[in-house]
């Protein structure tokens, strides 16, 4: 799956997109929901865990923690930005 990064998530991860291996290769546990994906990314990039208000979109729709993610889905990590 492809993860598109916006705002500060781009700075934390260091690129504008992130390709994730398929779920069978996610380690011990398969990542299937948005919550699990967030936890997985949080382990790899601890700075992400500091973001209390991070929206996640799956295929261009706002997703909740329990939204199921498929291998072919396009994910976006969207933190709020405040600049004006």
């Amino acid at each position: 799956m492809t993860i598109l990064l916006f705002g500060v998530t781009k700075d934390i991860i260091g690129s504008s997109t992130l390709s994730m291996p398929s779920s069978s290769e996610f380690g011990v546990k398969k990542s299937k929901t948005v919550k699990e994906l967030k936890e997985y990314l949080g382990k790899m990039y601890p700075e992400l865990k500091k973001l209390s208000s991070l929206a996640v979109a799956v295929n261009n729709s706002y997703a909740n923690d329990d939204t199921i993610i498929d291998n072919f889905d396009e994910i976006a990590l969207i933190p709020p930005v405040s600049g004006g």
């Binding site: 916006f6 705002g7 500060v8 781009k10 969207i78 709020p80 930005v81 405040s82 600049g83 004006g84």
Partner: peptide, 10 residues
């Protein structure tokens, strides 16, 4: 609502 940071906008 409009907001910006870096090279991006919302």
């Amino acid at each position: 609502s409009g907001a910006i940071q870096g090279f991006e906008g919302q």
